[in-house]
Amino acid sequence: MASNAAVPFWRAAGMTYITYSNICANLVRNCLKEPYKTEALTREKVHFSIATWKEGKPEKPVIRSDTPEE
């Protein structure tokens, strides 16, 4: 029942359910033993670029990535 008490806290911290569940999933992945751990972690790479538009003009795209730019 600990998770029930935690619900308002992550919501209050400005997280959505998706972020919350991702953090939980990442914790579970980190519980794996090697070599499965690195395998599971390399599978979950995030990379995309997102741009918001104002008045029909794109603003500078932000790159969301957890791999450093080469």
């Binding site: 979950e44 995309f48 538009w53």
Partner: peptide
Amino acid sequence: KNIELTISELQKNPLNYTQVSVLAD
């Protein structure tokens, strides 16, 4: 005038749920 967000370079790495969920967020 009606575009709010554009997203690209999604397929640089193989698609996975973490990536799409961060995007959905």
